[in-house]
Computed example of a mutant assay.
Amino acid sequence: MTLRTVLAAGLSLLGALPASAATLFMGSYPDQLLVFDEAKGAVTKKLTLATGLPTSMTLSDDGKRIYVTTITTSGIEVIDTATRKVASKFSLNDGTTRYRFWGGVPDPTGRYFYTLLTKFEKGVDRYTVGKPSWGVVDMKTQKVARMVELEREDERSGGWRSAYKLSPDGKFLYVFGEKVLIVDTATLKVVDRIDLAKPEGTGLENVGFGGPMDTIRTPGQYVSLFNAADPYIHNKMFGLARFDLNNRQFAFTPIGPAPEAMAGLQVTPDGKQAYTVVTNGKLGNKRCEFWHMNMATNAVVDKAEFPCRSRFRFGMSMDGAKLYIYGASYDIEVYDAKTLKLETTWDLGNDTTGAGMVAVE
Rank of each mutant, 00 (worst) to 15 (best):
M1K: 09
M1D: 07
M1E: 10
S12K: 14
L13I: 10
L13D: 12
P18M: 07
A19K: 09
S20K: 15
L24C: 07
L24K: 08
M26Y: 10
A50P: 09
G52T: 05
M57D: 11
K64N: 15
V68T: 12
T70D: 00
T73L: 00
A82K: 09
K85Y: 01
A87R: 09
K89Q: 14
F90E: 01
L92F: 03
N93G: 02
F101I: 02
W102E: 06
G103M: 05
G104T: 04
G104A: 07
V105F: 10
D107Y: 09
D107Q: 10
T109M: 09
G110C: 11
G110T: 09
T118M: 00
F120H: 00
K122T: 03
V124M: 12
V129N: 00
G130N: 01
W134C: 04
K143F: 03
A145I: 00
L150T: 01
L150E: 00
E151D: 14
E153G: 07
E153I: 09
E155T: 07
S157I: 14
A163Y: 12
S167H: 01
S167W: 02
Y174D: 06
V183S: 03
V183Y: 01
T185G: 08
V191Q: 08
R193I: 03
L196C: 06
K198E: 10
T202F: 14
T202M: 14
G203K: 08
E205S: 15
N206T: 07
G211N: 13
M213D: 15
M213V: 14
M213C: 15
P219H: 11
P219C: 11
Q221M: 12
S224M: 12
L225I: 15
N227C: 03
H234R: 11
N235A: 14
G239I: 05
L240R: 08
A241H: 06
L245S: 05
N247L: 02
N247E: 03
R248M: 09
Q249D: 13
T253I: 05
I255T: 03
G256N: 05
A263K: 00
L265D: 12
V267Y: 04
D270K: 07
A274G: 10
N285Y: 12
E289N: 13
M295P: 04
A296V: 13
A299I: 03
V300T: 01
V301H: 06
K303F: 07
E305R: 14
P307W: 05
R311D: 09
F312S: 06
F314W: 11
G315A: 14
G315N: 11
M318Y: 06
G320A: 10
A321F: 04
K322V: 11
Y324M: 14
Y324R: 12
Y330W: 08
Y330S: 09
I332W: 08
I332C: 07
D336W: 03
K341C: 07
D347H: 15
D347R: 15
D351C: 11
T353I: 01
A359S: 13
V360P: 13
E361N: 05
